[in-house]
Nucleic acid binder design. Structure first.
Lengths: 214, 214
DNA sequence: TGTACATCAGTGAACGCGCGTTCACTGATGTAC
DNA sequence: TGTACATCAGTGAACGCGCGTTCACTGATGTAC
C-alpha cells in the first residue's frame, strides 16, 4: 500500500509522528466512501508504521478520530471563510460560502459523515457556524437579507446545507432520482430562501451540465 | 436477551420466519444509536434463533438490510401521508408532513441513518418523495404556495428536512449548541421557506419548552 | 389404521478474518563523565 | 576524545473478540401406500 519503507524520525522529533498519523487517517478516509474503513490498523498501514506505534502518540483509536474531527472542522471553516471573503459582495459571499460548504461535503464524503456522525467531540465546530452567522448578519446590516435573527437563520441555513451535502449522493440512485437536475441553481435557491436573500435574478443558461459526480 | 425459547413455526409456515427476522432487525437498530450494531448475529439473537437460520430466508446480510430499508421507507411514507391527510388545510397538512418526516428521523435515529447511508437499494423511497411533491402541488394549485415547480421545491424541502433530521442530534453538544432553541418553530420556518408558503403568523407563545430529547 | 419416508424448520460447531490492544523487545542516538 | 548509559522511536508476536458464512446434522411433521 505505502511506498518505500518509512524513515524513522530523528531523536526528539518523534512528535512529528502524531501529525503523520492524523494525515494518514485523513488520506485513508478520503479515499473511501465508508467511515467504517477508518480503523487503527488501516491508519497504521497508510502511515507506513506498525499498529502499536500509534499508541505512543494517542491513547486509543477514538483519540485519533477526535484529532481528525478537529482538523477537519478547521479545514471546513477555512474554506467557508475564504468563500465569504472571495464574494463580489456580501450576498455573493454568503452564497459562495454555502457552495463551499456543500462542496466540502461532496469532496470528502466519508470524512464529512464522520464529522457529524462520530461520537467524538469537536469544540471548534462552532467556529464554522459563526462564520455563516456573521455573513448573514453582514447582509442583513446592508439590507441585502431580510433576516431579523441571523442566529436562527444561520442554523436553518446550516441544516439545509447539511441536507444537500448528505442527501444527494452517488451510489444510491433510488434516492431522489429526479432526472437531470440543475444542482448549482437549486443549491443557490436553497441558500437564498433560508438566508432570506431575494430570489435569484433570471438566469438564462441554467441548463449547465451537472458535473458533481465526475 | 430474548425471553423464553422461541417456538418453532409449524410446517409450511416457515416463511413466517422471514417477517420475524426483519422485525427483529428493526427492533435491534431502533434500540441503538449506531447502525453498525445491525449485524447478522445480532439480528439472530434478537429474533431468538441461531445465526445460520437466517440463511434459509435471505442469501446474506445485505439482503436483510435491503428488506429493512424497504419496510422503513414504507413506514415513512405512511406517516408522512397520514400527516398530509390530517392537516386542517393543504398548507397545514404540508407543514405537518414535514414535522412527521423529521419526527420519524428523530424517533428512529439509527434506522434513519441506515436508510440513507446504506449501499442498498430501496425503490420505494421515491414514493415518500411523491407524497411531498403532491402536497406542494396541491398548495400551489390553491394559491397557498408560491411554488412554480413543485418538483424542484419538493427536492429542496426534502433536503432541508433531511438536514434537520440528521444535523440536530443529542450526544454531540459541540454541534450547534445554540442555547434553548424553539425547534418546532424553526422547523416550521424551514418548511415554509422551502415550500414557499407565507411566513408564519405571529406566534405569541414561541417559548415553549423543547421536548425533543426526552 | 399403520407405518415408512420425504420434507421442512431449523441447530451446533467450526472456519478464517480483521479488529483494538498489550507486551516484551530492539536498535539507533544523544549525553554525562 | 572515548565510552558507558539512559532515552527515544519505534517493532513483532500474540491475545481475545465478534463477525459473516459454511457444513453436516437433528428432530418433528405431514403424506403415500
Amino acid at each position: 500500500m505505502s511506498a518505500a519503507r518509512r524513515a524513522r524520525n530523528p531523536r526528539g522529533e518523534g512528535g512529528r509522528l502524531r501529525e503523520e498519523i492524523v494525515a494518514a487517517a485523513i488520506a485513508l478516509i478520503d479515499g473511501t466512501d465508508d467511515p467504517a474503513t477508518l480503523t487503527l490498523r488501516g491508519i497504521a498501514r497508510q502511515a507506513g508504521i506498525s499498529a502499536p506505534s500509534i499508541y505512543g502518540r494517542f491513547p486509543d483509536l477514538p483519540a485519533v478520530i477526535e484529532a481528525v474531527l478537529e482538523r477537519s472542522f478547521d479545514e471546513l471553516r477555512e474554506q467557508v471563510a475564504a468563500a465569504v471573503a472571495a464574494g463580489p459582495d456580501p450576498a455573493g459571499g454568503l452564497i459562495g460560502a454555502g457552495r463551499a460548504y456543500v462542496d466540502f461535503g461532496w469532496r470528502h464524503r466519508a470524512r464529512y459523515r464522520l464529522m457529524f456522525d462520530a461520537t467524538g467531540y469537536a469544540p471548534n465546530s462552532v467556529e464554522t457556524f459563526a462564520v455563516v452567522e456573521d455573513a448573514i448578519r453582514a447582509c442583513a446590516g446592508l439590507g441585502l437579507s431580510a433576516s431579523t435573527s441571523p442566529h436562527l437563520d444561520a442554523w436553518m441555513l446550516w441544516a439545509g446545507l447539511h441536507g444537500v451535502a448528505t442527501l444527494d449522493r452517488p451510489g444510491r440512485d433510488d434516492l431522489l432520482r429526479l432526472g437531470p437536475l440543475n444542482r448549482p441553481a437549486m443549491l443557490e435557491a436553497i441558500i437564498r430562501r433560508l438566508a432570506r436573500l431575494p430570489e435569484a435574478p433570471a438566469a438564462p443558461d441554467q441548463g449547465a451540465p451537472d458535473r458533481r459526480h465526475e
